[in-house]
Design a protein around this nucleic acid. Structure first.
Lengths: 342, 342
DNA sequence: CTGTTAGCGCGTTCAC
DNA sequence: GTGAACGCGCTAACAG
């Protein structure tokens, strides 16, 4: 065991040709240079010797690793797995592999993590983990590293992105609530340092005004993070500060779930006394109690698109301006966390 | 942009020394060979020039990549994210990166995927994706590639593993059901080609017998896959074939969730008329309707342990026999999908 | 069509 | 302490 891996040279000697001939025969692109019978023999021998190309040597020579760095805040957050799966499916179809890294932008190690990726020579980067102020990704792109953002977008308009139609999603939610007779709804907004948080908040404000909802400033609370505990905290803040609102529009499902927990703890019935909406349609939220009314974003598709976009860049294709920022349509999924106002 | 990356040579020229001197100065292990003032200058310049070692060259030379392959069936299955996170956390503490691959053993591309990993020169492998008959991992270990399995285990006893205490879990569930007065319980077992499916089934049979449950063969149905749809299908099969049982013990949470869906569709109340138990305690099952009674496995911890085990192997340490197979304790989490039999 | 040559960037001998 | 030389395995340019 641990026997030396067979190299091009081993194959070449066995067949009685030069290594470069073997190299050409093994590469589909250059195989036609080689006489078919020789190629045949080379293939057979390399098979028999169980030849595996040495990726390090290949990379050193070509400056390509066929590895893509994928940076997300936290894989344990249920929004990400479908996105990752979409990314990985496209990459593997194309012979690429994904290095997965969990890191949040405000994490002390964030810069080091990206350095490590760059040092590994990844051919490209897919970032779900970035904040609006963020200059790191800018720097990497300036270093010549192709990068794309998923789910969130960068402040710089020239960082290609695949995101969801946040504006449309918020509009659908508010239309739904309006149809149910709500007029005073609170917004449990996300961190404004993240594009989704900001865009959803702004969409909420704009559409709420346009549709004639009560737009008092104090109906908005901003969360610091995007998890259930923070959803509970913010919902409590809202309930403690004011009353008379009949619905909570949360910036994402996890905040919504947290809010619902708090309502239950306080004995406020959802949806009978308070409607709650989410955003994302994470896996399984249809099985929650109550099943969550939310905006379905196409997580898997978004992942696929981001990876495809990066692949296209890597194929040397410049992106059309219309392809630089893909906004994927969303839809409203009405379940049981919203009800007609009493 | 896309300017050439700075290399050892660039730094060497700038400082006015030889590349090998720079190499030594930059490596903490060999830094003491270099005069402190020179080392200082080298550090400063390499910092200023933003020097990043070229991983391909390093690998070619040393035969190490500091990359670990992590192979799981499907990241979209909620059991895996916490495991992945555990793995990634210890790897990154140690300066390793993880290549994540989704692949099931019966998948046509499974072999190719593992080849790709081996070709990339990964330093080790963490496998959650394997079946009992599986010889692939055996082959890779024979090739000298350190490997560890998580969650499932291989048939060969000498493939190190980190798994959960399946036997204990099943015992706890059956004791719980017995205490609630159940005597006739069905087993929605997992595929017997997977170690967890087999061990949980065998534990069920053994403990059921020991505790005096009805052990008719027809109280068992074997699922082909581990998802909700299959849980529904198998539950239907059970209900169609016989009656008089008061609980369904599923081999994992997803099967249990599927079974509960089917019960609801047929108008059978859970837990009033039928208790259902899961296994794993996936994230969020506490928020389902009804909240699932299940066995909590320490997913994150299991991931950490597997990665630590691999790191130890890579440090050259042979594993103590007692460390070869770690079995992590589990606990019963009683929620609301089980009730006293009427 | 195939062989020769060169070099990717690095760590590691071996001299000095 | 430091420099020179070498080679890891591979592909690309150039000869023939």
């Amino acid at each position: 065991m641990a026997r030396r891996r067979t190299t091009l040279k081993d194959v070449a000697e066995e067949v009685g040709v030069h290594t470069s001939t073997v190299s050409r025969a093994l590469n589909p692109e250059t195989r036609h240079f080689i006489r078919p019978e020789v190629a045949e023999r080379i293939l057979a021998v390399s098979e028999r010797l169980n030849y595996r190309p040495n990726a390090a040597a290949y990379s050193l020579r070509t400056n390509k690793t066929r590895i893509i760095g994928v940076v997300i805040p936290d894989i344990a957050n249920p929004v990400f797995p479908p996105i990752i799966r979409g990314i990985e499916d496209v990459l593997s179809e194309r012979g690429y592999l994904a290095i997965l890294v969990n890191s949040e932008p405000h994490n002390a190690r964030h810069g080091a993590v990206l350095d490590a990726l760059q040092s590994r020579g990844v051919d490209g980067l897919i970032m779900a983990s970035l904040e609006l102020g963020d200059s790191i990704i800018r720097g990497m792109i300036d270093d010549g590293l192709p990068a794309v953002t998923v789910n969130r977008r960068a402040e710089d308009a020239d960082v290609p992105s695949v995101t969801n139609d946040e504006d449309q999603g918020m509009r659908l939610i508010l239309e739904h609530l309006k149809a149910l007779g709500h007029t005073r709804v609170a917004n449990l907004a996300g961190p404004q340092s993240i594009s989704t948080g900001k865009e959803r908040f702004e969409a909420f404000r704009r559409h709420a005004r346009a549709m004639g909802f009560d737009t008092s400033e104090d109906l908005v609370v901003f969360s610091q993070r995007l998890n259930e505990a923070e959803g509970e905290r913010c919902a409590a803040e809202l309930l403690d500060a004011l009353s008379g609102f009949t619905a909570i529009v949360a910036s994402n499902d996890r905040l919504a779930v947290g809010a619902i927990s708090l309502l239950r703890r306080r004995g406020i019935a959802c949806p009978a006394e308070m409607s709650v909406t989410g955003f994302n349609d994470m896996p399984m939220v249809d099985r929650f109690e109550p099943p969550l009314t939310t905006v379905r974003v196409q997580q898997y598709e978004v992942g696929r698109l981001a990876a495809s976009m990066l692949m296209k860049r890597l194929d040397g294709g410049e992106l059309e301006p219309s392809e630089e920022h893909i906004v994927v349509p969303v839809e409203l999924v009405v379940r049981a966390s919203t009800a007609r106002v009493r």
